[in-house]
Nucleic acid binder design. Structure first.
Lengths: 218, 218
DNA sequence: TGACATTAGTCACAATCCGTGACTAATTCG
DNA sequence: CGAATTAGTCACGGATTGTGACTAATGTCA
């Protein structure tokens, strides 16, 4: 079980690494990882590992895929199962002294298989962004729509148009306004929203062929 | 490694099961499975398992997810890694005498974890249908557009409008016509196409919030 | 042979969706 | 006060999509 914990830090997405206790390894940092103990499921083991590294419960913990190639891994395990843990900004986490957050696009050297796990995690997060309430898990319970849009831009890697974003969000019935407002220094205060998905009126769309690339896919 | 091999049979999607050699187990059938041998990657092991059960190479073999809960599995392994193998209709496969194709929605009793793997495989196939050339792997090299539409309807579980389907397909530049025509008994002959993806003119779309359900997601 | 059933393939209209720029609103700073 | 800054809305035009109706080419059967 290898855990990729993600949280936004400023305008960048960061991942949690822990210092390698083992000085034999070339890399000083690694993803938190461990094998399941006796009579422990893989989800339980992943939850234990992330709790130990983070000092808190993540907002979401989800399995990504298994990696079992010949690339090196700190544990020399035959197979590593990648998990993504999403942590809200400002969550009250207390990573122990041997853990630190690094921007995902500027990680220090880590074992090749763990780098592949991080890339797989980012890929999975982007792919599931519109199918799973991922963005909301990276924010506090209540948030402004500008904050939410910033998360989407962070994950998608491109700017979104404000009006379009809000129109799509409105049509999806995923958020509801609270009666609180936040004034964050300068500018007009923003209304706070909370994640509150509602049943949606059907309207299945047709088939979209976007995204099918030319890769032969294995 | 547990393999869910899929192929269309008539208007139904079918999966490959093999007879349980082990008579202790309550279930007579099971998914083909095996552990990696020494110095074998998980992808290599999966390819070996599917070759043994199918007697041929599948058109596509892709990992889905790992299953490591307490549900029963024939091997009593701690963790099972699910793979999907896509097999074209009429592919020259010769499953040995102890293997048979069953409609995925009418499987005989199998171990609970294996049933979860089949469901996970179906879910993943549906989710990746518009991101990966899955439908084309379930068809021969050349095919009619009606055949292709039938595959999509099979996988999506709903009817599609002919004109919409063809328009979307045209816009995606995924197929090219051959100069062959097939007359399949009655009705007008259909032109044969082949899968031939082309570079597409950009046009990134806005954010879509479809599909984000109310599940808290773990 | 000729009407009819059957399957393939196309067209065009209306409704909806979506990118975009321009606008108003509420606050801080100097 | 006016400029700067951030929030929020509107409305237009072009693109996308659901849909029914149409034409085309073949086999079937009286």
């Amino acid at each position: 079980m290898d855990i990729v914990s993600l949280t936004p830090h400023g305008r960048r997405l960061t991942a949690l690494l822990v210092r390698a206790g083992d000085s034999r390894s070339k890399e000083r940092w690694q993803l938190p990882h461990d094998a399941p103990r006796a009579d422990e499921t893989i989800d339980e083991a992943a939850a234990r590992v992330v709790r130990a590294a983070l000092g808190a419960q993540p907002a979401m913990l989800e399995q990504i895929t298994a990696f079992g190639d010949r690339r090196r891994h700190p544990s020399d395990a035959v197979v590593s199962i990648g998990y993504v843990a999403l942590v809200a900004t400002g969550a009250n986490t207390s990573p122990d002294g041997d853990a630190a957050w690094f921007p995902v696009d500027e990680l220090p050297p880590i074992a090749p298989r763990q780098r592949a796990i991080v890339e797989g995690a980012m890929h999975a997060v982007r792919a599931r962004l519109d199918q799973s309430p991922i963005a909301f898990r990276l924010l506090p319970q209540t948030f402004t729509l500008s904050q939410l849009q910033e998360i989407y831009e962070l994950l998608l890697g491109r700017r979104l148009h404000k009006a379009s974003f809000r129109r799509a969000l409105h049509a999806s019935w995923l958020v509801e306004p609270t009666d609180e407002w936040r004034s964050e220094g300068r500018g007009r205060p923003a209304q706070l929203f909370r994640y509150a998905p509602r049943k949606r009126r059907g309207s299945r769309r047709g088939v979209r062929f976007e995204g099918v690339s030319g890769s032969l896919g294995g």
